[in-house]
Write a protein that binds this DNA or RNA. Structure first.
Lengths: 218, 218
DNA sequence: TGTTACCGTTTTGGATCCAGTCCGGCTGAT
DNA sequence: ATCAGCCGGACTGGATCCAAAACGGTAACA
């Protein structure tokens, strides 16, 4: 299944990563029920570690739970989507503002490394790589704010829409937008212009939410 | 232990409520290790539902977990405290602004009912009752915003400081402040003045964080 | 025909037992 | 006296088994 050497030290951590990936990648579809026995068998563990992993995912909002009825992959309503993006707008702005005065060359180096991968993947149409590098780009910045709870909350908000976002990067034009917005935001960050960066990230999100909203209705 | 009729339908939900109460009330002290066997026996369940409850609490940040080393009651550093209150400031302001245009008479009735309990408890020095009614007051408002994720995030932020807040209401003067600030905020809400209410809540929090910071250092 | 009660099956919830890891103390060598 | 290595107890992680609740289909009844 995966290299045992790089496998987490406990089964539940392995299962957690695996199920999270399956959900955010859309492999497990929103709204579908999770059959514990079947899933546990597929991952070659017993139901106990799976159940603990599902409890974690419930806390993150990726699955819903009802007593004696089990877990389902969470679904996003239109109102949910708007709420998630509104919260991201507020919280990411705070993270950027807090991060800007703390940025040093090592952070910029990491940002630019991530951005390079984003651009290469965007050119190649490597959707999966691009999504991962994009996340690294943003969270490098968020984590530089020195507010671990904030970064964690933003992370769960990202996760809750990942299952729907998978198609966003499929569009050639969308990918070009992402690259351009990242560059503009980076320039603003370099200049110490927090508000400028915030504006670019707002535009960045706005484009994504429009596409996602379309997905959700179709 | 408690009335079986009102006991949750699953052991883990019962355990979850019980352990959460024990932590937020300070009965389980920050930093102390959680011995699963002993705690499970005290609650008259096996370790399985206890472990699932602890996973939920980990997601809320009330306990910390390290593989093969178990759970500990979370500790708050000074930086953590500042971060939690900063996030509350931002998120609660959003909740209030979103709620104000949606307030109707039934919400005001609920707010005033809660406020009445707060005032009576404040007068009697009934610390436990006051804390509960205070929470009901604030969350009635937050939930009126129609943003369930937002209310949930704010809830976890409240929980993470509850263990330290227990002493705040012990001070006679603090209790009077709370009553006065609630009244002022309510008046602003009645007048549809969101910004005014936000300012009162900010002052409300500011007073609490100062006292808490003192606790944390002493 | 529509509805409800029943019963077997499926699935989840929980208890017990075993394996693996961690921690503290002891021993012995330097 | 200090420290590395080993050993035994304590505790966590996981598998299996059993109990209880929910689901689906059938049949009896209004």
């Amino acid at each position: 299944m995966s290299d045992p050497a790089s496998r987490p030290p406990t089964a539940q951590q392995f299962v957690l990563a695996e199920v999270r990936r399956a959900i955010t990648s859309g492999e497990l579809k929103p709204g579908s029920a999770i059959r514990q026995e079947a899933l546990a068998e597929r991952l070659e563990v017993s139901r106990v570690p799976l159940r603990e992993a599902l409890k974690t995912l419930e806390g993150e909002g990726l699955v819903t739970y009802r007593a004696h009825r089990g877990y389902r992959v969470a679904e996003l309503s239109m109102a949910d989507l708007r709420e998630v993006y509104r919260l991201r707008e507020i919280l990411e702005a705070e993270a950027v503002r807090a991060a800007v005065p703390l940025l040093d060359e090592s952070v910029f180096a990491e940002l630019e490394a991530a951005q390079e991968v984003v651009e290469r993947a965007a050119g190649d149409g490597a959707v999966e790589d691009m999504a991962r590098a994009n996340r690294r780009f943003h969270f490098t910045l968020f984590e530089a704010a020195g507010m671990p709870r904030l970064a964690r909350i933003i992370g769960t908000l990202w996760d809750s829409t990942d299952a729907y976002r998978s198609l966003y990067y499929a569009g050639e034009e969308n990918r070009r937008h992402v690259v351009a917005e990242h560059r503009a935001a980076l320039a603003a960050l370099r200049a110490g212009d927090a508000e400028g960066a915030v504006r670019w990230f707002d535009r960045h999100r706005g484009a994504a939410v429009d596409v996602l909203a379309h997905q959700l209705e179709g």
